[in-house]
């Protein structure tokens, strides 16, 4: 590694670190601090780990934790796999690709609330999708109001909104792979499938790690579709932890409990992201000293 020129380090790091310290780290510190407080009879009171201890015996919290884990177990692999598939299609050179590339970019500019409003109409019992399914003699299904479907409908909406965005990062990553390598493998008779597994994916590892970490984070903290569509129901089947925290803090005014939930959520997230780093970041071939 290079010697570290102090001046240069300060110059390059200071703007970002200062910004993060003032506008992220400091507010985060205040938020963590808030998790040690509660309101009793209109007065703010320090209760140490009381909010956390309350969570231990809070059945709603544990149920919500299970929903969160299940939700993330499905949505993250699904989104990354679909985004990768889209990215591989996106870089193909075929007649008419320009049009498809354009269409793939559509969901990026649609904000999540608007996407949710549109999808609600699609998924209503008398809505668009049931209309189409009814045409082939299926349904009607209660996509948003049945405990069996609601969580998967939320996953579908978030995936629709999210995959194009992650696709862009993966397309960027594909650009960084030298085309000569793929070309060489092709000449040696490797099938497209082999080239994907043996060459593209390993070389895409840093980008995949980035997308996976960022995607997992965003999905762990996702609650807008739940908030707008199901309110955590039916029967608590879509009540993810972040929604539980949001409700506690902003609907019920119980900021202490909300922050305690957020801290637990982020701790869990850190463990998962740590595992992802372990599994994926060992890769880049380092030069031997």
């Amino acid at each position: 590694m290079n010697r570290s020129p102090i001046k240069l380090l300060v110059l390059t790091l200071a703007p970002a670190l200062l910004g993060l310290a003032v506008f992220r780290a400091y507010p985060i510190g205040l938020a963590l601090y808030e998790s040690l407080y509660t309101t009793i009879g209109g007065e703010r009171a320090f209760i140490g780990l009381g909010n956390y201890l309350d969570l231990l015996t809070d059945a709603g919290f544990w149920k919500s934790l299970r929903v969160t884990l299940w939700f993330n177990l499905i949505i993250n692999p699904l989104q990354v796999a679909l985004a990768l598939a889209l990215a591989l299609m996106f870089v193909q050179k075929l007649p008419g690709m320009a049009v498809f590339r354009l269409l793939f970019l559509i969901p990026i500019g649609i904000s999540l609330p608007v996407a949710v409003i549109i999808w609600r109409i699609v998924l209503l019992p008398e809505g668009f999708l049931n209309g189409v399914l009814g045409g082939v003699g299926l349904g009607p299904y209660r996509f948003l109001t049945s405990p069996d479907f609601a969580l998967y409908s939320i996953i579908a909406i978030a995936t629709w909104k999210g995959v194009s965005y992650w696709m862009i990062f993966l397309v960027g990553g594909l650009q960084n792979i030298p085309p000569e390598i793929g070309e060489a493998a092709r000449l040696e008779g490797a099938s497209p499938w082999q080239r994907l597994w043996l060459i593209t994916l390993p070389l895409l590892r840093p980008t995949l790690l980035f997308v996976l970490v960022a995607d997992v984070t965003i999905n762990f903290l996702l609650f807008a579709p739940v908030f707008m569509l199901t309110g955590g129901g039916p029967r608590g089947s879509t009540n993810v932890l972040m929604y539980e925290a949001y409700k506690s803090g902003f609907v019920f005014g119980d900021m202490g409990r909300a922050m305690a939930i957020v801290v637990c959520l982020v701790a869990l997230l850190l463990v998962i992201v740590g595992i992802q780093f372990r599994l994926l970041s060992s890769a880049p071939p380092k030069e031997t000293p």
Partner: peptide, 21 residues
């Protein structure tokens, strides 16, 4: 590590302290 973690907190959680800042 701290830089990476800094984006893992929901914005809703820091909105109020950030408003004060």
């Amino acid at each position: 590590g701290i830089v990476v973690v800094s984006f893992m907190l929901p914005f809703e959680a820091i909105a109020m302290p950030l408003y004060t800042v």
